[in-house]
Design a protein around this nucleic acid. Structure first.
Length: 456
RNA sequence: GGGCCGUUAGCUCAGCGGCAGAGCAGGGGACUUUUAAUCCUCGUGUCGUGGGUUCGAAUCCCACACGGCCCUCCA
C-alpha cells in the first residue's frame, strides 16, 4: 500500500482479480460505468493520463509555467492560499519512485524544471528523497487540479459545465479555475450550474461514512427510469431529500413516475402537474432513443399493488396485470412488469416498512370481543373442517361469504376480524386465497382461538 | 472567522412581485363477495425570525436563526 501512496492512479496496478489495466480504470470501469450504463448514461471517455503522455497538454503546461507568477497570485487572491515564491503550477512525477504527490517543482528555465521528491511533504505518502531536473512534458508531469481543469476547458472547448456545491463555493476550486481560465489561458470559463447533493435522512449520501444508503444499493432496488426521475424532477440547486429506509419514498417515486407518464399520454391525472411534466418524463427515460409518447402509453402496473401481490401465495401476477390492463401485455410491458416485480421483491427485502409486509401472526389470537362474531368464526372453522384439503381460494372465500350472509353480519366486519386474527391488522389481501395458502389445521385452530372456543 | 445553497401543510416538493398550491399521508363518506382496490369529499399554513423597499412581498434588499456543504492537500 505505502509503495503506491502518492503514485498516479493510472500507474497503480488494478486490484487482484481485476481485468482492468490499472487502478484508475478499474474503478471508473467497474464501479462508475456499471452503475451509469443502466441509467442510460454512456459517456465518451478521455483519459488524461493518455493525453499527457501523448503531449496534448504540453502547450498548456508551457503556458502555465510561463505564467507561474499569475497562478500564484490567483491562488492568493481568490482562495487566500499562499504558495512559496518558487512554487510552480506543475506536479512532476518522480523519476526515481514514480510518485507525483510528494514532489515540489521550482526553477522553470523555459525547457526544464528542478524538482525534489520530499519524504515529509504530505502526511499520507513518503517521498523517496530524489531530486533532479526534468522537461515536464509528454506525461512526465501533470498540471495541478485547478490549472488542469482550466486547461481542459480550452482543449475540449467546453462551454457549459456544472459542478457540485462543494466546488462552487466562493474562493473554492471553481473560482480558482475560472480565474486561471481567464488570466492564464485567456478564455472565458464555461457557464457554471452549481448543483446540490442527494441527502439521505438529512445527511449527505456517503458510503464511507456508512450513512444512509449507498448509490449502488439504491440502484439495486430502484429501476433506472425512477432513479433518473429522482435526479431530474428537482431544481438543481435544491438538495434532494431521499430516505428510502422504512418509508414509502420508493413507492411514491413510482407513483410520481406513473402520474407523469399518464399526463404525457394524455390520460387524466389527479391534481396539478409540475411545469413541463412531459419533459420531466422524457428526461427520466433511460434510453435516449425511446419515444416518450410511446413509452408513456404503455401499461404501467402500480408498484404498491405489485408489492402486495408478490406476497400472496398462489397469485399469478402476470395474469392479474393483464386483467387490470384489459388485454394481453406487450413484450415491452412484460419487461416493465418483470422489472417492477423484481424491484418490489427487493424493496420488501430491504427498505420497506414493516406495515408493507404481510406476515401471519406467530402468537395466538385473542378471542374476538363480539359474541356474534365469535360464533360466526366458529361456524367458519367448522365449515372449513368439512372441506377436504387442499382448499382453494374460492372455497374459503365462499365459506366466509355464505356464513356472513346467513348470519346477517356485514362481510366487511367479518374480513376485519379475520385479518385481526391472522395478520394482526384490520385489512389485508384477499382473505380466501390467503387462508387457502396456509396449513388447514393451523387455520382452523386459529379461527377457534379467535372464536374463544377450546382448540383441543 | 469567511463563503455557497437551502428553510412553504405531518412528509416530499412546486410557486419566485398580484387571491398560499399539488402529490402522498391523515379525517369523513360511498361501494350487500375485499387487490391495502376504486370513487366522492375535507387544506388558516406565524411561507424560519425581525426589519426594509413597494399600491401590493412566500417572491426583491438587509440582518439574524437553523440545516447542509466548503474554505490544507489531492481530485
Amino acid at each position: 500500500m505505502d509503495r503506491y501512496m502518492g503514485v498516479p492512479l493510472s500507474e497503480v496496478p488494478a486490484p487482484a482479480g481485476s481485468a482492468a489495466a490499472n487502478y484508475a480504470r478499474h474503478f471508473v470501469g467497474e464501479l462508475f460505468l456499471s452503475t451509469f450504463k443502466p441509467l442510460g448514461l454512456d459517456p465518451e471517455l478521455y483519459w488524461m493520463s493518455e493525453l499527457y503522455r501523448a503531449g496534448t497538454m504540453d502547450s498548456f503546461i508551457r503556458t502555465a509555467l510561463d505564467a507561474a507568477t499569475t497562478v500564484r497570485a490567483i491562488y492568493l487572491r481568490v482562495s487566500k492560499v499562499e504558495k512559496t515564491a518558487d512554487w510552480l503550477p506543475i506536479s512532476v512525477i518522480c523519476q526515481t519512485c514514480g510518485r507525483i504527490g510528494t514532489t515540489h517543482a521550482t526553477d522553470w528555465d523555459g525547457e526544464t524544471v528542478a524538482y525534489a521528491c520530499q519524504p515529509d511533504m504530505v502526511a499520507w505518502a513518503t517521498g523517496c528523497g530524489a531530486s533532479g531536473r526534468v522537461a515536464p512534458f509528454g506525461g512526465l508531469a501533470k498540471l495541478p487540479f485547478n490549472v488542469d481543469w482550466a486547461a481542459k476547458w480550452s482543449h475540449f472547448g467546453v462551454t457549459i459545465e456544472g459542478c457540485g456545491k462543494d466546488l462552487a463555493t466562493a474562493g473554492g476550486s471553481r473560482d480558482r479555475s475560472d480565474a486561471i481560465a481567464r488570466e492564464v489561458f485567456h478564455r472565458e470559463p464555461p457557464l457554471n450550474i452549481p448543483h446540490e447533493f442527494i441527502n439521505v435522512g438529512g445527511k449527505k449520501m456517503s458510503t464511507s461514512r456508512a450513512q444512509g444508503a449507498a448509490a449502488h444499493e439504491i440502484a439495486a432496488v430502484v429501476p433506472p427510469e425512477q432513479i433518473r426521475l429522482l435526479l431530474v424532477r428537482h431544481r438543481p440547486q435544491q438538495a434532494i431529500e431521499f430516505n428510502p429506509d422504512q418509508t414509502d419514498a420508493i413507492p411514491r417515486l413510482f407513483d410520481e413516475s406513473d402520474r407523469l407518464a399518464a399526463a404525457t399520454a394524455g390520460r387524466p391525472v389527479r391534481g396539478e402537474l409540475p411545469a413541463h411534466a412531459d419533459r420531466i418524463f422524457a428526461a427520466s427515460l433511460p434510453d435516449a432513443g425511446m419515444d416518450p409518447a410511446a413509452a408513456a402509453a404503455t401499461f404501467r402496473p402500480a408498484f404498491g399493488h405489485l408489492a402486495l401481490l408478490v406476497q400472496i401465495p398462489g397469485v399469478n401476477v402476470a395474469e392479474r396485470a393483464a386483467a387490470e390492463k384489459g388485454s394481453a401485455l406487450t413484450p415491452a410491458e412484460v419487461a416493465t412488469l418483470d422489472g417492477r416485480i423484481a424491484a418490489a421483491r427487493a424493496w420488501l427485502a430491504t427498505y420497506a416498512p414493516d406495515a408493507a409486509r404481510i406476515a401471519v401472526r406467530e402468537d395466538a389470537a385473542s378471542p374476538n370481543d363480539d359474541p356474534a362474531m365469535r360464533a360466526l368464526l366458529e361456524d367458519i372453522a367448522n365449515r372449513l373442517a368439512a372441506v377436504a384439503a387442499p382448499w382453494t381460494g374460492d372455497q374459503v372465500q365462499e365459506a366466509i361469504f355464505n356464513t356472513a350472509t346467513e348470519r346477517a353480519i356485514p362481510a366487511g366486519s367479518v374480513f376485519a376480524a379475520l385479518y385481526a386474527a391472522f395478520l394482526g391488522r384490520t385489512s389485508g389481501p384477499r382473505a380466501g386465497w390467503l387462508l387457502a395458502s396456509l396449513d388447514p389445521a393451523f387455520v382452523i385452530g386459529r379461527l377457534r382461538e379467535a372464536a374463544g372456543s377450546p382448540t383441543a
